[in-house]
Design a protein around this nucleic acid. Sequence first.
DNA 1: CGCCTGACGAAAC
DNA 2: GGTTTCGCCAGGC
Length: 129
Amino acid sequence: MTVRKKPAEKIKTIRPSGKREENFFALVFEVARQIPKGRVTSYGAIAACLGTKSSARMVGWAMNGCHLVKPKVPAHRVVNRNGMLTGKHHFTPPGMMEKLLKKEGIKVKNDQVIDFDKHFWNPAEELGL
DNA sequence: CGCCTGACGAAAC
DNA sequence: GGTTTCGCCAGGC
């Protein structure tokens, strides 16, 4: 997919004065929760949606507290740009990530999502940004 | 206060 | 076209 829009303007509404408050985490979790079942997205996509596309690492790093958040965050639906389950080692059982994905209809082979582009869920697009 | 690390991504080789 | 390096930004030590 291609970068068609620049959510920077919308982000400005969410992030007044470009302040990097911990709200960034909340936003990441918020977007991650919006991922529909049977769909997957990438850290970079979420980052781009938030406006910090250059900091995809921050998104992934933010997921470190995904299990600490009250509403469950489907972190298993978030993979890297390559469609690889790089964060599976961070799950309670390492293999639970692909297990959940498979249960939702996502085919996973060797820690990699099959037809990643087909199951890809663009936050910026689906959220109306 | 400075250096290292990290669930990524894109450019360079 | 696969592998390696650099860049990003925030947190931990």
